[in-house]
Design a protein around this nucleic acid. Structure first.
Lengths: 251, 251
DNA sequence: TTCGATTTGTTCGTATGTATT
DNA sequence: TAATACATACGAACAAATCGA
């Protein structure tokens, strides 16, 4: 029986899973914030009273999940949304011919409201919970390409307002992270083709009823907790959605 | 300097990368075929004259890339396309409400032709190379949902004909694998929304010019060699494209 | 059913290489 | 240059799953 850090769980899972869980817990609690280093492998090994190999295996998985980032000679860091690296991991629209590019944002609308049933389900909210709703246009090379309708639980984003959204630099997930210590680590998306409604068509500069790509995204933080529901409409005349089924291990 | 299995490469790469390369070479050459076991880790360790840990690290990456599959107590197997597991890895269409389901196939057309410029580029073919072109309808719960236009290099699929395509069981990639020992291990897709042309609309049972999802896929085998260009049109009235950005390490 | 051989999974430890500061 | 941190490689021991005798 290995119970160096037993937490009284019913089923004894591998030690490195325990370590992984404790590390994740540290991330949730903000012991180590985005962009910061976590303790060195040898330090963690002594602190958790396990071998350094066990630490490495736990960190391996968190690195594979893009939650941590290793840098030889420097240390292991909490992944942050203020790098192009992660930005492209969460932004999948690219020009059909041009090289990939990050979008510019413009806030069109912001309000607070009661969650509709769909948002309740997607975000796991109580009935009648309050949410923030915002609408953004994303432009690539100066042209509007994506329209985003974002819904987040108001409770987790206190004091969020138009000024904060406009004043930010970087992506919205960077704002979640910097201001609310909420780290988006995974997204799940469902795509379909729909005719553009009048308002969407106007904003994206396409004819009414023209085909646009519709994306329904749920963004998750640690422990698969949902934090954002996002609906997007994409003008795919000159751009497209990129789904490069993961090349697997580092090359 | 570690050169237990040095192959005279210019830059000395890690031993486990060498091992990985030699294993992949074995897969390419058909030393171990789909569904078969590869030698045990200890046997590989002695054969390659490296430690078992080095073998494990090489296999780890191939497992992460879904090229090999480990089974405790049994061995390590070459991944095959005759399992639901991998089928869903390469088929991304799901009902909006129903549980996920594998499609039934129907061959609409098959012919040989000269590759068009797009196929030449995508598949890295010589100018004027011959290709097989086929059109399939995929049905879910009896309803046509996806139309596939598939282009593959004729040279790599000798003797392929309608009978072989119709007579097969399982997916097309299963056929590539069983009959031609070509293993599709990765795909890259670009998605957009387009109006359905007349023929597409008829087959999918939607109005002409109605929005449909268009997918351009390139399928790769080992060493990132392209083997198939596929264009798909999807009726997304009751179905959608699933892009669950990889949960990362095994849970 | 039991047992033993085989194979992968987990954990430990150590030594050395390489990048960073 | 020295210290620190991750990366690679080796080896050993035991656990857990599988399979056939």
């Amino acid at each position: 029986m290995h119970d160096a850090l037993s937490t009284g769980l019913p089923t004894t899972q591998p030690l490195y899973k325990e370590v992984k869980l404790r590390l994740t817990r540290g991330l949730v609690e903000g012991v180590w914030k985005s962009g910061e280093v976590i303790p060195s492998e040898s330090r963690l090994a002594t602190r958790f009273a396990v071998s350094i190999g066990t630490i490495r295996k736990a960190i391996d998985e968190l690195v594979a999940e893009q939650i941590l980032v290793r840098q030889q000679g420097r240390g292991t860091f909490v992944a942050t949304h203020t790098e192009d690296r992660t930005a492209f991991y969460f932004f999948h629209i690219a020009g059909k011919h041009e090289p990939r590019e990050l979008p510019a944002h413009e806030l069109l609308a912001f309000r607070r409201a009661k969650a509709d049933p769909e948002a309740e389900r997607a975000l796991g909210l109580e009935r009648g919970a309050r949410v923030c709703v915002m609408r953004n246009v994303l432009t690539l090379s100066g042209k509007p390409v994506v329209l985003d309708d974002i819904t987040i639980p108001a409770e987790r984003f206190p004091g969020l307002d138009e000024a904060a959204l406009r004043g930010r630099e970087g992506t919205i997930y960077g704002l979640y992270e910097a201001r609310y210590r909420i780290n988006v680590v995974r997204i799940a998306e469902r795509l379909s083709a729909v005719p553009a409604e009048a308002d969407v068509a106007t904003i994206l500069g396409v004819k009414a009823r023209a085909p646009v790509l519709f994306i329904r995204r749920i963004a998750y933080t640690y422990h698969d907790a949902p934090v954002e529901l996002r609906k997007s409409w994409v003008n795919t005349e000159a751009h497209e959605y990129v789904s490069d089924l993961w090349k697997g291990a580092p090359r």
